[in-house]
């Protein structure tokens, strides 16, 4: 799930180098934007650096320090936006919110600037400031495209419901020899699954019914 920001200390290639991508799992470099500064949380801008956008993550690498860089998966980018109002932030930037997986009350205390060591896992905001503000709209659209490439992972094994259901089933169907064991093993996931779906359908139904009721109460022509 959401992992938040990571430190990137390794890279490949000569000179400033490039981020190491997981090409075996289909990760591709989508866009490189040179001359981008980065601000994490309320911390000051860091520069100069280069922004690499891959099909899986956003990586910022310092141009001068090969051991310094940050990365965040698109799975953890909950929101991104173009910010141009100088009152909101002095430099036009791509503003992002990052899902950390850390409990809310723990994250980003205001005195974190005093800490020598920066806890990246608690950073909930990241700003990317390209030296050329005309690139903001392009970057925004690339972020959108890549976000859509990274939907929530499908978790086949989730659902306590399935587990409880299948355990019940195993108990009732055991004792009839090999055949029933075969049946229970094969049929349980299907039954469990449809059961989960049914619950969910009910939830949706309730939601829709409630919306309908609320609508009718509020906007009924008879008042």
């Amino acid at each position: 799930m959401a992992t938040g920001l990571r430190l990137v200390t390794e890279r490949v290639g000569d000179g400033a180098g490039e981020p190491i991508l997981d090409a075996q799992n289909g990760e591709e470099l989508v866009h490189v934007q040179p001359s981008v500064s980065i601000a994490l949380g309320n911390r000051p801008l860091e520069s100069p650096g280069t922004l690499y956008i891959s099909s899986k993550q956003v990586v910022w690498l310092s141009d001068v320090d090969r051991t310094k860089g940050y990365a965040v998966d698109f799975l953890s980018v909950s929101l991104h936006a173009v910010s141009r109002d100088p009152e909101a932030y002095p430099s036009p930037c791509i503003y992002t919110q990052i899902e950390t997986g850390v409990e809310d009350d723990e994250s980003e205390s205001s005195d974190s600037e005093n800490n020598e060591t920066l806890d990246l896992s608690k950073i909930t905001e990241m700003r990317l400031v390209p030296s050329d503000p005309d690139q903001l709209d392009t970057l925004f659209e690339i972020f959108c495209d890549c976000a859509e490439l990274n939907p929530e992972p499908v978790d086949e094994e989730d659902g306590e419901h399935n587990w409880v259901f299948s355990a019940d089933n195993l108990v009732t169907e055991s004792g009839d020899g090999e055949e029933s064991e075969w049946i229970s093993q094969n049929s349980v996931p299907t039954i469990g699954h449809s059961n989960g779906d049914h619950d969910l359908a009910n939830t949706v139904l309730q939601v829709l019914l409630w919306a309908l009721r609320f609508y009718e109460q509020t906007f009924s022509p008879t008042r």
Partner: peptide, 16 residues
């Protein structure tokens, strides 16, 4: 949320 005053366009991940 003062910093959200003025973003012109915004993309929100469905899961959040």
């Amino acid at each position: 949320f003062p910093h959200m005053l003025s973003v012109r366009n915004c993309f929100i991940r469905g899961s959040v």
